[in-house]
Design a protein around this nucleic acid. Structure first.
Lengths: 241, 241
DNA sequence: GCATCTTTCGACGAGTCATCGAAACACGTC
DNA sequence: GACGTGTTTCGATGACTCGTCGAAAGATGC
């Protein structure tokens, strides 16, 4: 068979097949999952480009070339780590079906989106960079992004029509929303530029999500006093899951 | 002398010193500037990591190793391209001295910041990544970022005290402002994720700057109706230069 | 005992950034 | 003219990437 396609990962036995590792260390569990865990940690710590396949291999006790038995490429590893992160899309669909008022709707979607990005191991911009270099390889992820953008744009437009949001160009307003969520996601996971400020700026993903969604929605509301209502409503809807 | 320190760049003569280039092509002007121009273009087009020193060398008709006579490293090239981009800091200082009302003040600083980032050849996040890898090498740039952040935070805090802005944590509000500007800068220069939307979302750097500053300020204002005033006032102040 | 399957290894190729000594030229002095 | 000096470029090379390939090492089935 073609090994690089990735062997079946269903076995849970102690796993004693195949050539033993040079390090003697027997695989703790599913090697594929082991590699994913190590990569997730390293990518999150040092970023995608700064992490080498040798490092990943070493942390799981494998030789560099052995990782390529489980994953075709470094980018394949990256893609596998994004997995099925479509939560925010599902939220958008659910609230659209429920005819939720635009402010709460937008808040909930942005909140879910930031939460998802912050909890993942990958910086959104790292992923974007890789997707830009190989569009067809990341086609599904790019399509998901497009769908989410379209959903948000529809909500923004609905809010403008309903009078909840200030009238304007829905496209640029959506761009601002996404830039806000992506930017805050990045600032959350990489407290870099000037280290002094840090400490307690953002406590966790939920703080980042609240800040991003709150700021973005408030910038659009005709009556900003309703921002608190939107947040409450959105959180209530999200809790229902 | 130590050549890698960078020779003096003051000469304007036809330049016939040194070993001739393999390509025969005589340097059009100052080789150092030629390299900077080529690098700026390539970095802007394909990004920092995706651009190789060989490409840069080739576009100016030089061998790969010859670039290292003019610049110590690829990062040195990157740093040289950020040059003296302290316009937004100067704006912040000037308006602080003039006791400008916080909304206009904040708008003007964010506007100048985005404009500066969008007009430069470098993606802010590219620069940040490099700075993160070698903090002392980019110390000055990091310090500038810290100063700008502090200025913005002071303005936000002043606005909260004066009642122009909604009360809250100035630090996280500042973080949101910066995330907005950086995120929009990125979206402006890399229209990537889903290509369909593009076309006319953001026409130029000024559009990006207006969107970012307007959105960020509006999210903070107690009375969003004053957003237009803040924009007008800020633009008037900026035009005075 | 022997073929088969799975997993790992080691060697290798192409590409990156960066270094080093030598080469090629113009210009000064003899 | 020949000869050293300074400037700029080259070519070879090293250490490091990612990724491929064939072979090796073990368990399993006949």
């Amino acid at each position: 068979m073609t090994p690089s396609a990735g062997p079946d990962t269903t076995t849970d036995r102690p796993r004693t097949v195949g050539r033993p590792r040079r390090t003697g260390a027997a695989p703790a569990g599913d090697p594929r999952q082991e590699i994913l865990d190590a990569a997730a940690r390293l990518f999150a710590d040092r970023g995608y480009v700064a992490t080498t396949m040798s490092e990943i291999a070493r942390t799981v006790g494998l030789g560099q070339s052995s990782v390529y038995y489980w994953f075709r490429s470094k980018e394949d590893l990256l893609r596998a780590l994004t997995g099925a992160n479509r939560e925010s899309l599902e939220v958008a669909h659910r609230l659209a079906a429920a005819a939720t008022p635009p402010p709460e709707h937008l808040y909930a979607v942005l909140y879910a989106d930031v939460l998802q990005m912050c909890r993942g191991a990958l910086d959104f911009y790292d992923l974007e960079r890789a997707a830009h270099a190989q569009p067809e390889f990341f086609a599904e992820i790019l399509a998901d992004y497009g769908r989410l953008r379209a959903e948000i744009e529809a909500v923004v437009e609905a809010g403008m029509r309903s009078g909840d949001f200030v009238p304007g160009d829905a496209r640029t307003a959506t761009l601002a929303c996404l830039a806000q969520t992506e930017g805050i996601q990045h600032r959350f996971r990489s407290p870099t530029p000037d280290a002094a400020e840090r400490g307690a700026a953002l406590g966790g993903p939920a703080d980042a999500a609240r800040l991003a969604a709150g700021t973005a929605v408030r910038a659009l509301l005709v009556d900003p006093a309703r921002a608190a209502d939107a947040e409450r409503g959105a959180m209530a809807v999200l809790d229902e899951t």
